[in-house]
Design a protein around this nucleic acid. Structure first.
Lengths: 116, 116
DNA sequence: GTCTTTCATCGTAATTTTACGATATACAGT
DNA sequence: ACTGTATATCGTAAAATTACGATGAAAGAC
């Protein structure tokens, strides 16, 4: 077989090679940051969730489930992905969970994209 | 087992539910378009490729391979993903292949992101 | 206390992604 | 025709993604 520790998935990709001359750790970080946010938006359901949260400023999980043609557990999974990417956050409201966009996350994304 | 024809991956996701009241096929298409482009940028190597092509306006495949800590076949695979997403295109230059950004693809991405 | 509601997590399966080496293909030069 | 260079594609394996139902955990209602 071979090593296959996946040089790219975590945070190692593109960094070894970049040391080969001109220091561009800046670019590397941008690459990873943008890739991380882009990946989080790489599914229509998650784009939709972000859109809804942008409109309603805040939204209960159950309402999001109602807006999507997916099982509750699947929506919960998508919410987790967006949370791990730092795009949304949640607070508890009794038995309910209130989601909202992380302030500045959209601005950060737009900035990274505009720098392309 | 069950059906599991994956209602989301192709182009079906979010469309059945959207018919439940206010017609918003517009939003659905935007969701899919943005998700498609975002997914294409959802890997640091592909972000890097797009950045390089933006700088140098045009680039031979081999140079891209030299800039990335990945095997030639892997880079070729990433290029294929970007091509299928409509972000880059290629022309043959002798035995070499010359890649460039598809004119307007970045603008389209920026527009979709700015509409978030 | 016991329900009920709301959501996250678990277990699982199918599919996709990511990576590599090996091989095929296409073109230029000799 | 043969050689070498450049690239794509194939075969394969590991890991991640996407989806679902079932189960678990927390909080309010009774």
């Amino acid at each position: 077989m071979k090593d296959r520790t996946n040089l790219c998935a975590p945070e190692k990709c593109l960094e070894p090679a970049a040391v080969g001359g001109f220091a561009q750790g800046e670019t590397d970080r941008s690459d990873h940051d943008l890739a991380r946010l882009a990946k989080a938006l790489g599914h229509p359901a998650r784009v939709r969730i972000v859109r809804i949260l942008h409109q309603r400023k805040t939204c209960i999980c159950g309402e999001l489930v109602g807006q999507l043609p997916l099982a509750q557990s699947t929506v919960s999974q998508h919410l987790k992905i967006l949370r791990q990417a730092g795009m949304i956050e949640a607070t508890n409201d009794g038995p309910r969970v209130c989601y909202r966009l992380v302030s500045g996350s959209l601005v950060a994304l737009k900035k990274l994209v505009s720098q392309l």
